[in-house]
């Protein structure tokens, strides 16, 4: 279970996360939503101890991530598919990670099998497509058989088959009693696999509710667009619309 309480993260004058509080419960998939630059990835990086919070706390199973004796066995993390040295093979990348926790070769082979990477495990990660990189990231997250998973855009770049697989995977993980925090921009996908969604914009909490409740009058996408209307950081314009001021996007 992940508990984020009054979390604030500033980089100099910029506030990336602003007093954010939410919980990702065990046995459920918590969708994490927000426009680009809303602070989702920053929040996830703070949860797994890569960044120090300016104030507030983030805990997993009641402990600060850095205080976990066996982090990989408690939390599986996939933050960015490009978290692998391009010159290292998928197998050796996973082995090196597994060694930090004394996880054996058998489990490395197991997660390679689970993510469908058998045929490319001996290839250097630099030759991987985005989708294969995502699978490798998910394999790394599953290494320690953790009770909590933090997945940042796991379906990004996956083929339709892979998207379906991730959907089933996270549902199964939650059904086994694990907590899954998953960010995505694919509303349709989240509507299918999340139990609850946390919506943030400009670092602040906009909504924290069950999917069914948010999507009660319309689709999850409608609800999301309504919630984030005033919090979109970067906004494109339609062709021919040049010159018009972006409504919510003025910085």
């Amino acid at each position: 279970m992940i508990e984020v309480a009054a979390l604030t993260k500033r980089y100099g004058p910029t506030t990336a996360v602003d007093g954010l509080t939410f919980t990702a419960r065990a046995g459920a998939v918590t969708g994490f939503l927000g426009p680009n630059g809303a602070g989702k990835s920053t929040t996830m990086r703070v949860v797994v101890g890569l960044e120090r919070p300016t104030s507030g706390t983030a805990t997993v199973d009641g402990r600060r991530y850095a205080d976990l004796p066996a982090p990989l066995r408690t939390v599986g993390v996939m933050l960015d598919a490009r978290s692998v040295h391009p010159g290292r093979t998928a197998f050796r990348h996973l082995t090196a990670l597994a060694r930090t926790h004394g996880i054996g070769r058998a489990r490395v082979d197991e997660v390679i099998g689970m993510t469908g990477l058998e045929s490319v495990a001996g290839r250097r990660a630099g030759t991987f497509s985005l989708g294969m990189g995502q699978r490798l990231g998910i394999a790394a997250a599953l290494l320690g058989d953790p009770g909590t998973l933090v997945l940042d855009e796991p379906v990004n770049g996956l083929d339709p088959d892979g998207v379906l697989w991730v959907r089933r995977l996270v549902r199964d993980l939650a059904a086994e009693g694990r907590a899954v925090l998953l960010s995505s921009h694919l509303m349709h996908e989240l509507a299918l696999c999340a139990d609850r969604v946390v919506v943030i914009g400009r670092g602040r909490l906009l909504a924290d509710a069950p999917v069914a409740e948010l999507a009660a009058d319309g689709s999850l996408e409608d609800a999301y667009l309504r919630l984030t209307a005033g919090a979109v950081e970067y906004q494109g314009r339609a062709v021919g619309e040049a010159g018009t001021t972006a409504v919510g996007g003025a910085r």
């Binding site: 990086r45 797994v48 101890g49 890569l50 991530y65 850095a66 976990l68 982090p71 990989l72 939390v75 993390v77 933050l79 960015d80 490009r82 978290s83 692998v84 040295h85 391009p86 290292r88 990348h93 990670l97 930090t100 926790h101 790394a140």
Partner: peptide
């Protein structure tokens, strides 16, 4: 290479 994210998530 970004390996640091994997490394320091494993050894916080």
């Amino acid at each position: 290479s970004g390996t640091a994210r994997s490394t320091f998530a494993a050894v916080p």
